[in-house]
Design a binder for these strands. Sequence first.
DNA 1: ATGGCCGCCCCAGGCGGA
Length: 264
Amino acid sequence: MRITTWNVNSIKQRLPHLLGFLEEAKPDVVCLQELKCQDEGFPRAEVEGAGYAVETLGQKAYNGVALLVRAPLTASEIRRGLPGDGEDVQARYIEAVVSGEGSPPIRVASIYLPNGNPVDSPKYPYKLAFLERLRLHARDLARLEVPVVLAGDYNVIPQAEDAADPEAWRHDALFLPASRAAFRALLAEGYTDAVRACDPRDGLYTFWDYQAGCWQRNQGIRIDHLLLSPQAADRLVSASVQKHLRGLDKPSDHVPVTVRLSDG
DNA sequence: ATGGCCGCCCCAGGCGGA
């Protein structure tokens, strides 16, 4: 079972790259973020044609998340939106139970956490509140004692080792102590950062800004994460970053990150 | 020289991203 998370920065712009990735990697589940379209604008027929069922939570112009599930696996118990704030209309969370092929069901979420900049605006408290809501929901899911994968663009650089130039991020919402503490609090609910658990090396990035030649100079950061509940972590085989996609024409500024879990 | 982009939307400059 392979599960990928990828912030595509516009599904319409990135559809060719997505279809190429599905064909070459054949992941079982794909968590997409930043669709930047409404549900009716999602290129559903093309993705279904590649062999995937599609569940979306879209929004005009901004945000938007989706889950793709490769047949014969199926998605059920779809949850759209993160609990805890009925006023929150931003499309940042979708969750489902993925089952089939004789292996135990896995609960998977596609998450697009708020960026939070500028930090002196209401956007930063919204980010911290969203992280706290996610912690409470993650705690509820952990109590089910089943495999859970919380995957997405967390917009948090967990540690200095996760940035090529940590000093440049010192006062940024992605790296402020309160942001990192909220991420650690999430892990403290019993979750494992799959990439970090598989590879202790520095210099493993998932995002390179379009500006300032960041890709060419490898000025990246690691902000796309897959957090595993204990029952999912017990099955963790490997984790990898599909860095090559950043080098294509018209790339997303994020690349896919994939975990492999053992079956059964 | 410390900036350099990209995608969205009532089509064009402002907003959001990170």
